[in-house]
Each structure stands twice: as C-alpha cells, then as structure tokens.
C-alpha cells in the first residue's frame, strides 16, 4: 500500500513539475538582485559565516525537457478531461432527476385500456374510464355516419370533417369532458342528436363537434388504435 502511494505520488509530482521552470527563473533574478545589494545591507545573518540571505538551490533538474507547447497541451488536456468527465457526471445526475419526474411504471401500465368491441351493439354508447377521465365510445349506425359526414362542417365553430374525428366511421371515440368547463356531457341528448352538456348547455353533434352553447372546441379525441377487428386500445 505504501509503495503504491509513494509511487503514485511520485508520478503526480512528475506531472506537476512542468510549471516550475519560469518560477525558478524569477527567483534567480531575485537572488541576483540580493547579491548586488549585499555590500551595503544592514542584514545580520543568524547563520555563522553566512553573508547572503538568499541562497537558492538549483532547480535545473526539475526543468521539463519538453517544449512549452507540448507541456501546455498536456496541462490543458488534463484540465479539459476533468471538465469533460464532470460534464458527463452532471448530465447523468440531472437526467436521473428529470427521469424521476416522468410517469412511473404503474401509471404507464394503466395508460392503455383495451376493450372488446364485439360487446357493443350498433347505436349504443359505452363509457369507460381511462387515465381518470371518461371516454365515450359510440357504435354509430349508418344513418348517424351519413348525418355526421353530410353536415356543413366548414361553418362550425371548430371546423373539422368527420373523417378527421373517427378512424373507422362506425366507431366514434372521444374524451367525455366538455371543452367548456370540464363537465361530463350526457349522451344521446341535445338539439343535434349527439351529446349535451347539462352544466352550461353546450350541444355536440353525432361526431362530437360543438354546434351550440359556450364550448369553444369539439370534444377531444384520444389516441387509439384497433389491433384487431373487434378490439380497441385507447392510449
């Protein structure tokens, strides 16, 4: 252990030595000045027979044999490497804290809801809970699809064609949260045969588009997918 320590410290010392050359030079200059002043100095040396106060040993053996540039490159390399590693460590630390804030595994496990569509007859609404919010799934009849597609959507408050709101025309999937103040609208109600929000009287049509009332936007469409003919995955 001690051998290791001494060797590593010797190594480090070798590394640190390269800065010494200029210092040695300055102190030499100081010494020279000392000698010039010596004759008239009032200095009284405590060492017997010693007349000079400035005896500076030779640092020649510590002087780097390499040129200045290569020593500088080495020094900047060491400092730069330390900065780089510190940067990597800091980045990893910050990243870990940020990842900590993202959704945990149990939330992610609940983030997707799978549903069997074959149990929903035509012309029926189903409400399921997804991430704490209700999701309306409506199996639309052919008449309803026609009605939704034929509506003059360009003049609506939030103009959207029906094709942009349903991946398959017979299945309408929407977040059941009124875009006005977040109430849950009632299905198969309202002036347009779709949904009606009882809180402030917003009317949505059979494609979930707002037609009347204070709501500013159409009912939101969550992400969903049909992995097979008879099932849907929301999320």
């Amino acid at each position: 252990m001690s051998a290791l320590t001494s060797r590593s410290s010797a190594l480090l010392r070798t590394c640190a030595r390269q800065r010494l050359a200029p210092i040695a030079a300055t102190s030499m200059a100081a010494q020279r000045r000392g000698k010039a002043d010596q004759a008239t100095s009032s200095f009284d040396s405590p060492f017997r027979g010693e007349t000079s106060s400035t005896k500076i040993p030779s640092f020649a053996s510590y002087k780097s044999s390499k040129g200045e540039t290569s020593n500088k490159v080495f020094q900047y390399f060491m400092v730069g490497t330390m900065g780089m590693l510190t940067g990597v460590g800091a980045k990893a630390t910050v990243q870990d804290f940020l990842v900590n804030m993202s959704a945990s595994a149990d939330v992610l496990a609940q983030a997707k809801v799978e549903l069997d569509l074959s149990a929903i007859p035509e012309g029926k609404n189903v409400i399921i809970k997804w991430r704490g919010k209700p999701v309306f799934i409506r199996h639309r009849t052919a008449d309803e699809i026609k009605e939704a597609e034929d509506a003059k959507w360009e003049s609506f408050r939030d103009p959207q064609p029906d094709s942009a709101r349903a991946k398959k025309p017979e299945w309408l999937v929407m977040l059941g949260v009124c875009t006005h103040l977040g109430c849950v609208p009632i299905g198969e109600a309202g002036d347009f045969g779709g949904w009606f929000c009882p809180c402030h009287g917003s009317h949505y049509d059979i494609s979930g588009r707002v037609r009347k009332g204070p709501a500013p936007l159409n009912l939101e469409i969550p992400e969903y997918d049909f992995p097979s003919e008879t099932s849907i995955v929301i999320g």
Binding site: G67, T69, S70, K72, V73, Y76, G80, G83, M84, L85, G87, V88, K91
Partner: peptide, 29 residues
C-alpha cells in the same frame, strides 16, 4: 512538437473552441 502545436492552435488556443471541444468529447465519451 509539430503535433503538439497543431493541437494547441486548433483546439485549445481559443477558449470557445476549447469549451466546444470539451462538450463534444463529453457527448462522444
């Protein structure tokens, strides 16, 4: 010495270049 001065002049001499080098090498590293 030629290599050293090439490295010094290209990567270290300007502080901005030196810092950029450090961050780029951190990414690669």
């Amino acid at each position: 010495a030629g290599l050293a001065s090439t490295i010094y002049n290209s990567l270290i001499r300007k502080n901005t270049v030196f810092l950029t080098t450090i961050f780029a090498s951190a990414f690669v590293f």
